[in-house]
């Protein structure tokens, strides 16, 4: 099931929290929805899940529109809201049974679904506890189990890993990847490595507008542009090496990092100087012990497009 967001606008009074967003999520894709706090991520998700009405624009899930077929959309979406609200006083199993029943899972099927979710989400050891006795990581699993209990085709996860410790983050991420193989997933976050690890595509929004949209590697390339390499050359005099490096025709800038014969070499836009560096070392009988491309990571992309 694909999701099409069409020039969506949500106004709170005079403020435009979401300001004309359009994007599409294809069937089976995991899309990371990125942006600083207050960019409009949660609002967009609330509109997709039919919790809130949009001021303008429309969202289509499959062939259904949030304006007309809210009931049908709610049935095929599983939603994990921000902060993962749960009925804390309920035991895990009872809560999942409640969630299944209210989602309209057939009565004869409820126990089987609950058993499966307990297995998939790794809740077996904790299943008889009350939810308020669980650690945050397990609560998050209960939230995910709740979202998937009716086997929805679309999963909307609002910051599924905030507040978890690094091990739990990895576990939840794997879980999302695993279940995301057959489902369309939108997950919001402001943790960048998370998106790289889990998502097929990234949509970055800022101030209610989309500022970047693409696969992670493409975005990274866009941001970096020129090739930057870290080079370690031994045996030569630093000054001489520096001069020779600067004189290579494709090199734009050389930065001497001071210690350990390390240099940062920035090539001219679209060109590569790695071969030339190697040949230079051979010619001078210097020893090249390191030649590492420095990749701009998503943090830079994110900072570039959301600031200034």
């Amino acid at each position: 099931m694909n999701i099409r967001v069409e020039s969506l606008v949500k106004k709170y009074g005079n403020q435009r929290a979401v300001d004309g967003i359009s994007f599409e999520v294809k069937s089976g894709e995991i899309v990371g929805f990125l942006g600083p706090n207050g960019a409009g991520k949660t609002t967009t998700m609330k509109i997709i899940t039919c919790y809130m009405a949009a001021s303008e624009g429309d969202v289509k899930v499959g062939n259904y529109s949030v304006r007309e077929d809210a009931a049908a959309i709610k049935q095929c979406i599983g939603y994990l809201p921000e902060h993962n609200p749960l009925y804390l006083e309920m035991p895990v199993i009872e809560y999942l049974q409640f969630a299944a029943s209210i989602q309209g899972v057939a009565k004869s099927n409820i126990n089987a679904r609950v058993r499966e979710m307990v297995k998939v989400c790794g809740l077996d050891k904790e299943k008889h506890k009350r939810i308020d006795e669980l650690s945050k990581g397990f609560r998050q699993r209960v939230g995910l189990a709740q979202a998937m209990i009716h086997d929805p085709e679309v999963l909307i996860l609002d910051e599924p890993t905030t507040g978890l410790d690094p091990n739990q983050i990895v576990e939840i991420r794997e879980l999302i990847r695993r279940v995301g193989e057959q489902k369309t997933v939108i997950l919001s976050t402001h943790i960048l490595p998370e998106v790289e690890a889990t998502c097929d595509r990234i949509v970055i929004i800022n101030d209610g507008k989309i500022v970047a949209d693409g696969v992670p590697s493409e975005l990274r390339k866009q941001a970096s542009g020129a090739e930057i390499s870290r080079v370690r050359i031994e045996e030569g005099m630093p000054n001489e090496v520096f001069q020779q490096l600067s004189s290579i025709s494709t090199v734009e800038l050389v930065d001497l990092s001071g210690t350990d014969n390390l240099y940062e070499v920035k090539s001219k836009q679209g060109l590569s100087s790695r071969r030339a560096i190697f040949e230079m070392c051979v010619k001078n009988q210097w020893i090249l012990t390191e030649l590492t491309p420095i990749e701009r990571d998503l943090e830079d992309v994110f900072r570039n497009v959301t600031m200034g």
């Binding site: 899940t49 804390l88 209210i102």
Partner: peptide, 12 residues
């Protein structure tokens, strides 16, 4: 607690 959001995004 925000559970109203969960409830209302279910088909009820």
């Amino acid at each position: 607690s925000g559970t109203i959001e969960l409830l209302l995004t279910n088909p009820v």
